[in-house]
Design a protein around this nucleic acid. Sequence first.
DNA 1: TTCATAGTTCGATGATAGCCGAAGCATTGG
DNA 2: CCAATGCTTCGGCTATCATCGAACTATGAA
Lengths: 232, 232
Amino acid sequence: MKAGPDIAMIASLVGDPARSNMLTALMTGRALTASELAQEAGITPQTASSHLSKLEAGGLIEPEKQGRHRYYRLTGPDVAGVLEGLAGLAARAGHMRVRTGPKDPALRRARICYDHLAGDLGVQMLDSMKRQKLVRAGKQAIELTGEGKRFMAESLQIDTDSLSHPRRPVCKACLDWSERRHHLAGTLGAAMMARFTELKWAARDEAPGSRVVNFTRTGEKRFAALFGNGEA
Amino acid sequence: MKAGPDIAMIASLVGDPARSNMLTALMTGRALTASELAQEAGITPQTASSHLSKLEAGGLIEPEKQGRHRYYRLTGPDVAGVLEGLAGLAARAGHMRVRTGPKDPALRRARICYDHLAGDLGVQMLDSMKRQKLVRAGKQAIELTGEGKRFMAESLQIDTDSLSHPRRPVCKACLDWSERRHHLAGTLGAAMMARFTELKWAARDEAPGSRVVNFTRTGEKRFAALFGNGEA
DNA sequence: TTCATAGTTCGATGATAGCCGAAGCATTGG
DNA sequence: CCAATGCTTCGGCTATCATCGAACTATGAA
């Protein structure tokens, strides 16, 4: 009865270091080629190919052929959500990968979590939104208030009525692994991050696979004006 | 390379079928003993012990010693959340799994835990005793109040002064197998159960090895009068 | 005390699965 | 056509790890 492939099947897919490296590389939301993923995982293309077909069979990633290349991306935000959840558990247990690079502080400050803002600034933003009563945080769900809708329209030119999605909530609390607190996910979180990019307040790091988000000087100011934490 | 939580470490823990069976068994919120988890996973106790220590080291479960038993539970709702997320991904990929059948309802309602009452009624009894201030529940210990002593003498003809025992506390909170909450153990718990039997309010099931406790109709009424939870 | 039960540790075994070298398709460009 | 690139398949090697038998510790019961 329990021999069937269940959550162990999926978890074992993520449980291999090479595969988990590929998956975390895909958490930026961008699609990467098989070779790039192989390099990301530190393995040969042959081995990577085997891993990628397994991940595809497990429904975690999906391919898109483009000429000689084969681009892979996560099949959906829910996959990224589970990965982020696993990262949270790992962080809580103190199982960090010890390789600390120069990008580490930047990664903690602001990074992409699939398609929305995470890190210190992401947590700060949600905190501020709660303080300003732009969102109402219930036990599980987060809800946008009327004031929040006005705020989004006036300050960020985001039409919140167009954010409804059949398989994804507008607001969602996503556990931040570095801060161990929640930041804002969902279609609103994604839309806000996209707006930040459009406004040239912030941009993803150019390095391929990097999840770091760099804020411009003016972007940081505007962001602080809207979502500052009131500290000196 | 990259810095970050080692999600492969956590995922590989869940990735083993035996361990994932244990974890899903714990997702009900109940705490289970090592043997029960072994049976749930269909493995020997030796193997289960190895798995359990790994899960504990990974911060996914935590033990609670209770006499000869060792109860394990998930360390928090976030663990259950990640497991649920993984189950969602597995379901989406078409990897469904057959759920295990429900346990004996009578066993859940009332049973013997060593020598005292456990199950729904056992938990209900301790709850009611707290509400009526018959006992004072501290962080770890439970203490009988003066009012509690009077109650025991008048309503159940139990001389609480004679319950002292060199190696056993009078009152003790015991984690309930099915309710995942505490019921009353200790010499008082044993004395109360013995009294219920004497008064023919309840009797142990005749089937050998059965832990089920059957309440008589009048016994149930009297019990409810003393320890009813106020519901209709 | 002696016995029984719950759980752990140790050691050996066996199967799974990651890994890479070499060769095989497929696509693009000349 | 041929050559180069991106990726996959095949075969064999190796290491990891789940598994269980046996022995050991600890708690409770008689």
